Simulated assay, not measured.
Amino acid sequence: MQFYFCELHHLWQKPTVKNTDGLICEFLPKGTDFGKVTDEEVQHAVELICDRPRKVSGYRTANEVFREMVHSA
């Protein structure tokens, strides 16, 4: 799997990161006390985010793209 590291302060290089941050904030808003968040709540948020179709992936989910990459390796 290839990795790409964005340069610091170059926001245009990381639109997917910013989009994912926004999705996470839908479930765990700013100011959330993470000491009170359960593992199950985090896992539920991750599952919903990873099962959400994305335009950048041809409207496939992150889980679908991951499975395709694993099976093609």
Rank of each mutant, 00 (worst) to 15 (best):
V42N: 00
H44R: 04
V17Q: 11
S72Q: 14
Y4A: 13
N63F: 15
F34D: 05
G31F: 03
E47S: 05
F34R: 03
Q2K: 13
C6P: 00
P53F: 00
V65K: 10
E40D: 12
C25V: 01
E26M: 06
T38S: 15
D33N: 11
D51W: 01
D39K: 11
T32D: 05
K30M: 06
C6W: 08
N19W: 14
K30R: 11
W12V: 02
V70T: 01
L48D: 02
L8T: 08
H10I: 10
H10S: 09
P53V: 06
E41S: 06
F27P: 15
F66L: 15
D33C: 03
G35A: 07
D21N: 14
H44W: 01
V56M: 07
F3E: 14
Q2N: 05
P53R: 10
L48V: 09
N63K: 09
E47P: 00
Q13E: 15
C25Y: 05
S57A: 11
L48G: 00
Y4W: 12
T20N: 07
E26W: 01
H44C: 08
A45L: 04
E40H: 11
F34T: 04
H9M: 00
E7F: 07
H9S: 09
V37G: 05
T32A: 01
L48S: 02
R67Q: 15
Q13F: 01
V46K: 02
D51K: 03
A73F: 12
P15G: 02
D51Q: 09
Y59T: 00
V70L: 10
H9W: 06
E40S: 08
A73L: 14
K36I: 09
E68L: 15
A45T: 02
K18L: 13
L23A: 10
T38M: 02
I49T: 06
H10F: 12
F3P: 04
V56A: 05
F5D: 13
R67M: 13
E41N: 06
V42Y: 01
